[in-house]
């Protein structure tokens, strides 16, 4: 290192450009403060467009708007009274909840198990890992089509492979709900597995090595170390799955249209039948608004749980 620069100093002369000419331009405070808002304006406008539709939908819930009644009148809470007094609503809500609990539960257990198995990075695991995501990327409605073909009692491959004959009906009154849950599990277990696997791989290795040296058992390490640290990742997956299950439509609709009877009629299918099939817009909107409230409250609650778990895991991770 030398103290002068080869006879020519880099910053000898003042800039030849106009940098110093005249007073520097000033930007008023309000313009500075407005920047983030300006950047968000297009997004906000777009949201307003959609929110407009949303509030329009909320407005429908206090009307008696239907295709058969093109000149709707204000009816107050009549729709709510009707929907909440309708056994079908509660039946649909129960079906939705059962669907969500069964699917989310199975997907979580299987997803965590698959993540743990793949984390062993055996040759077989590595070979298949890239293919894990495939069912998740297929449109749920197409997944429904695929499974509908496989469920077919006469020609479906499942009855043939399992030797169930041609009378076993996967979508019968007793089995339909479990079958549509099975399809959900097929699609979304990879979602849980991928998130949890990424979580496991981002965990610090030191605690495991330390307790390995201490001779802790596998189960102890899993319960005391891995599970608490993985918990936030599992929760993210569970939250996404549970919320999505509450509004499930595509795969169930194509498989059963909510039947047989109302055995697989979830809330969104119920609302679809009211507003699209029966063209009773107000009733369908009321269904949807009630579902929206459920989703919203659940989301707020679960996000709170997640925040808590993340803070706790941050403590456990040290």
């Amino acid at each position: 290192m030398t103290t002068t620069v080869g006879g020519r100093r880099p910053t000898e002369e003042t800039p030849p450009g106009g940098a110093r000419a005249g007073a520097p331009p000033r930007i008023p405070d309000w313009r500075r403060k407005a920047r983030p808002y300006l950047l968000s304006v297009p997004a906000v406008l777009l949201i307003i467009g959609i929110l407009y539709a949303f509030f329009y939908g909320v407005y429908y819930t206090v009307l008696d708007y239907a295709a058969t009644n093109p000149d709707p009148q204000f009816v107050g809470v009549a729709n709510y009274r009707e929907v909440l007094g309708d056994p079908l609503f509660w039946r649909s809500a129960g079906t939705t909840l059962l669907y969500a609990v069964l699917a989310t539960g199975a997907e979580t257990v299987l997803g965590v198990a698959i993540a743990l198995l793949l984390n062993r990075s055996s040759l077989i695991g590595k070979t298949f890992e890239r293919l894990l995501i495939l069912p998740l990327m297929i449109a749920p409605v197409i997944a429904g089509v695929i499974w509908k073909l496989m469920f077919n009692p006469q020609f479906g491959v499942l009855n043939h492979v399992f030797g169930l004959g041609s009378t076993f009906d996967w979508l019968s009154r007793d089995r339909a709900l479990f079958s549509v849950v099975l399809v959900d599990v097929w699609i979304y277990t990879p979602f849980v597995a991928i998130l949890v696997l990424a979580g496991i791989r981002s965990l610090p290795q030191e605690p495991f090595e330390a307790s390995d040296v201490d001779g802790a058992s596998w189960f102890y390490m899993f319960r005391r170390l891995m599970l608490p640290m993985m918990w936030p990742y599992i929760l993210v997956a569970v939250i996404f799955r549970f919320m999505d299950c509450l509004k499930v439509f595509d795969s169930v609709y194509v498989l059963t249209q909510g039947g047989p009877g109302v055995t697989t009629t979830t809330l969104q299918i119920s609302a679809f039948q009211d507003s699209i099939t029966n063209l009773n817009y107000s009733r369908g909107s009321t269904y949807m608004f009630l579902l929206w409230i459920i989703v919203f409250i659940t989301a707020r609650y679960l996000v709170g749980v997640l925040g808590k778990a993340q803070r706790r895991a941050a403590g456990a991770g040290v």
Binding site: P15, A19, R20, A23, P24, P25, R26, I27, P28, D29
Partner: peptide
């Protein structure tokens, strides 16, 4: 000698 109030970083040299 010039107040830099409201002057953007790229104009301050």
């Amino acid at each position: 000698g010039r107040s830099m109030r409201g002057v953007e970083p790229y104009h301050r040299n």
